[in-house]
Structures are given as C-alpha cells and as structure tokens.
Design a protein around this nucleic acid. Structure first.
Lengths: 340, 340
DNA sequence: CTGTTAGCGCATTCAG
DNA sequence: CTGAATGCGCTAACAG
C-alpha cells in the first residue's frame, strides 16, 4: 500500500483548466464563484480524492480552528466529563479540540504549552497541575497567540477568565451535613494549599466547624496530593486516631483509596465512620449507596468554559475582559451517617 | 493584553545581519553551523521571544511529529490507561499525541478521521467505535498519508497491524472460574457481535460451558452496547430469570451498572450471585473486594501499539507489513463465589 | 560554515 | 464571476 501523491488545488485547477484561486474559493464555498463551476470543482475533487491540507490553510490564515485543553488527568471522572462538555460546544462551533494531560506535572505542563504554542492553537483551556505555583510559562502564549481560560482551578490573571465552582460553599455544606448527622470528630483530607480551590475547601471545613463550636484540630487534617495511594495512607492514620466519627475528603480519588483500606480492615463505612467526598463518579453509588457526595457541574463547566473561550477567540484582542463564572454545587445527601 | 507581532526567523536574521537559512539551521541544531553563531542566534531568539511556527515547518517537511489516537471513550479506565502507555512511548520518541474520542459513534469517527487526515498527522492509533462495521472511512488516510495501527479492537486489513488481547482465552477462563465455583446458570452480558472482540469473548463463554457439559441457553445471553444503563436493564432481566447463580459481563461498565441495580434491590453480590467482569478499574476493589475480574494489560498495550506505529512511520512505506501482537491476560481471582 | 534561491499548499489582494 | 500575482514561515537543495 504505497503512498500516492497528494492532490492539491493546483491539480484540480489543471484538470479543469481553470485557476487554482477559483478552486480555493469553491472549496471554501465562497459566494463569488458560480454554482456551476463550484459543482464541477467539487465533483473533480471527489473524483481525484482531493484532501485539504489544513497545515497550509492554517499557515496562510493564521488560524487553526483548534483549541487546546490541558487537563491534569483524563481518567478522573470529573475531568472526562468536563472534556465532553468542552467538546460538545467546540464541535458545534466548528472547532477541533486537542486534549493534553499534564499528569499533575509542571514539567509536562510546560512542554504541552510549548507544543500548543508552536502549533498555534486558537485558544487554550487549562486546569493547572498541582505543582504549578506561578504562571510564567503561560505568558508567551497569552501575549503572542491567543486567550487562555481557566476551569476548575482558577487564576487571578488580568484578562483571563476562570470558570470554577463555589468550593467554599460546597465544603461548608458538606461539613455541616456531617455535623448535622452527629459527627463531632471529623477528619479532613486536604489537597495542596498552593491550589486555591483546596484552600477554599479547607476554609469551608474550618468555618463550618467554627459555626458549630467544634474546635479545629490540626491533627485531624491530612494534607496530600489526594491520589488513591494518599487516601490509603491517610486512612491508616485515621484508624490510629482516638476518636473519629466522620471523614471528609477534598476529592473523590483519595476518598476511594480510603474506602478501599477501610473495607480491607473490616471497618464498616459508613456505619462506623461517615464519609463525604467531592465526587462526580457514578460509581460512587456502587461503592456505597449511602455515601454522601458533592455533585459538581462538570459537563456544564466544560460547556461554559468552552463557550467563553470561543467568544474571546472571536473577539480577537478587543474586549478580552475577565468574565469569571462561579458555578454552584449540589450536595447529594445519601443519609450517610448512622446517626440519622 | 494585545497580541504582539510574531517573531520569525527572518526577524532574527535581520537583527543579526545573517541569513534566515542559517537561523533555521541553528534552531534545528544542525551541525553545519558554528557553535558561536548558534549561540548568538539562540540568545537573540530568547531576547526577542521567538516561537517556532510548527505549521510552516510541518508544511515544508511534510511531517507533523504528531500521532492521532482515536478512542471510544476516554472515561473508561481501560482506555485512559492505554492512552497513558501510548503517550509515554510517543513522548520519549519526540512525538506529540492528539486524543480524539468517538463516543462509539461512527459519524464522529468519520469526522475525526477527516480532521486527522487534513492535519496530516504522521500515523493513527485506533480502536473503532461499536457502530463501525466497515473501514472505508479509513482508506483515504491509509492510502495517502500514513499507517494506522489498531489496538484492542483488531482489524484484518492488509498492511495494518493490530494489538489486542487474547479475548477468547480470557473469556474461557473467566467462565471456567465461575463454573469451578459451582455456578451452573451463568448469565452472559454480551457486546455487539459486529465487534470481533465481543465475538471472541462470547465464543470463549460458550466453549467453556460446553467443556463442562452445561448447555448454552440463548435466554441467558443479553446483547447490548454494554453501557452502564444497559447493565442496569440487563440486571433487571436477570432478576426475572428462574435460576441465576453467576453473571459474567463482557465489560466492566455494564457490570458496574448491574451491581448498582442489584445493590439497590438488596441483592447481595456476590453472595447471591457471583459476578465476573472484564475490568481494569482499580475501583473494582472498592465496589466489591471479592469480585473476580480480568486484568487487561492496558498500559502495556498502549506502549506496544505506539511503538509499532512509530516503527512504521520511520520505515515510511517500505516494510509496512502486518505484525499483530496478541497479549495475554491475567484472571484476578478474588474468591468471587459463595461456593468457594 | 554561510548565503542564495525556490517552493511546500493555500488564501487573498488586485485586476479585469 | 474568474485569473494573476504574492506571500504565510520555514526548510532544503545548491553554491560558494
């Protein structure tokens, strides 16, 4: 199966004895070419198996019709749902989407930015990695190429929009839910405090305790990267604490790890320990139908982020003002605690 | 934040009073330019914030250093692990990866093929959608642009390699495992028989029954797209059957849906019903630590598929012979049945 | 080691 | 409505 020569608009032009510029116009459905010649050209294109070369077209127009999405991990249910939302909106608007995962590594994130930059994607949607503390590696793209919109993990750049959820409120309510069910000794699995989202969630937890006159205890707060393994380690520590009647995890991945460990040790969840976790995984209902989770508007977030970005791409440089959205969450109460 | 002009190699050349071809060579680290001028050029590039335009470069060289990956769903754990394997190998070799999900839709798959074709990616890795019955939409790419390698869902094209797992054997062993644990009435959740992988799995199930003198019963075999909802529907049917002591699902997604339904109806799994499912999700240990699953070599499959493709890209057209690999699986026995 | 020249495939002026 | 001419940014002969 040997590569045949690529057909170009010039080949079509020669075959029809017209000029390539006419072919180009026809292929782009320009109104400035007669229906008759248009049909001739399209037919010939089909006949010869013409395939447009986007590289050339993009180079010429300085536009790729593609947006880049940087995501920490596609395997996390929350993110794969966001991606589906992004794709839906983007495809509808005629844009392609390239998905890149940073795996929470700053180094990978930098390399990805470089690649998206040199490939001149029209805009970027990003949820920065947990290692990312400053945003310098985003500037070359932002200054020279196109807009960047942050989703889930916001950023306070001038001229950059962020779409996030109301983490503070969600966290506050989750904690209050445990308290309402009689929990007083609530362990909290926290994420890196470099990430604003995790700062907000921790604050929500602390403030909810305070409101109900429960003292915040540093020993009940474990900070980690919230991987599944981290969840398992944290669970071990939980079992060594004197009294624990509630666990609240700042994400689902760590919560799942912890559940796994609890089960392996015969700790009944949530009969012995009530658990709440940020969660978008339908699987949670399988793990423990009575587990209380926080339903994040993932798909919707993707759609909004995508449409904000596309808007900014359309508006070119004018009008690229910060227009951040904060989405509300929904606490799915599943009667998690034994005390209900 | 207004877009500044893009710096090109000509700008660098002018600033240094040399020719742009020398700049180009230096930027590509050609040995044919002195270390001194190389440094001058690199310094200037940094100073002016030069950013390579891959579009132009790719157009010129007729090479994109990018491979396309078409995947039915990134949210399925199996596939996201395959992708990680693909990325690891590809990045090491200096290739970029663009991930596209077909969502099991032939229509989307066609559109994706078109986009990858017009963007001239150097090669494609594909697991075709469940709706895909013939491969005509792959031919334009295959004939004119580059190699395609199939993973997980193989294809019998000439000149196309496939990387798959030994589905027949895995399925046979899974069924035997249930039988060994005393199950005689085993429901089977099957996938579309258009997909060879699902044909093989079904055959493994049937042959294992036969070997143990259990009659294959069409009423115990439900065919669906194996979505979570399909799993729930199938589970409903299971509960209406006279005797069932085992369920074997051809994938994990449907198994999870079924488990969910069983739990909601108070059916204890696997105390009442033993379940086996193809599964790569670490979460399975949480759902039901005693669930028996089939451990597919997902990450490894990605690495192999990727390296086979890169090999073919390097070899251009010569030597693109079929070189399919069949990976073996591992049955993770978790004492699933009550009868053990 | 560096410069000259040409062109990848396409889109867009400007003429007619 | 169509054609001629130009160049997007880069690389690759071919000279020197």
């Amino acid at each position: 199966m040997k590569k045949t020569e690529q057909i170009t608009i010039h080949d079509l032009a020669r075959a029809l004895e017209i000029d390539s510029s006419t072919v180009s116009r026809a292929l782009n459905d320009s109104p400035r070419v007669s229906a008759k010649t248009k049909k001739r050209i399209l037919d010939k294109a089909n006949e010869l198996g013409y395939q447009r070369n986007s590289l050339a077209s993009n180079l010429r127009t300085n536009k790729t019709n593609t947006i880049g999405v940087i995501v920490p991990r596609i395997s996390r249910n929350f993110f794969s749902n966001v991606i589906s939302g992004i794709e839906e909106t983007a495809y509808q608007a005629g844009y392609n989407v390239v998905i890149c995962q940073s795996l929470e590594s700053l180094d990978r994130e930098k390399k990805i930015m470089n690649s998206l930059l040199s490939n001149r994607v029209d805009g970027i949607l990003i949820s920065t990695s947990m290692e990312t503390e400053n945003m310098d590696h985003l500037k070359p793209y932002l200054n020279n190429v196109g807009p960047i919109v942050f989703y889930d993990r916001p950023c306070d750049f001038e001229n950059c929009s962020s779409i996030s959820i109301n983490d503070y409120k969600a966290s506050f309510e989750a904690t209050e839910h445990l308290i309402a069910n009689g929990c007083k000794h609530i362990v909290y699995f926290s994420g890196p405090q470099t990430v604003s989202l995790y700062r907000n969630r921790k604050q929500g937890y602390i403030d909810a305790l305070k409101k109900h006159d429960i003292e915040f205890n540093e020993a009940y707060c474990f900070e980690s990267m919230l991987s599944e393994d981290n969840g398992i380690e944290s669970a071990k520590k939980v079992l060594k604490l004197p009294v624990v009647d509630g666990v609240y995890s700042a994400n689902d991945t760590a919560a799942i790890g912890a559940m796994q460990y609890f089960k392996s040790k015969g700790v009944k969840v949530p009969d012995d320990i009530a658990v709440v976790g940020f969660n978008n995984d339908p699987i949670s209902g399988v793990i423990e139908p009575s587990l209380t989770t926080i339903n994040q508007p993932d798909f919707e977030m993707g759609k909004i982020a995508s449409s904000v970005l596309l808007q900014q791409i359309k508006n070119k440089d004018i009008n690229r003002k910060k227009q951040s959205a904060v989405l509300d969450i929904e606490l799915i109460k599943r009667n998690s605690s034994k005390k209900m």
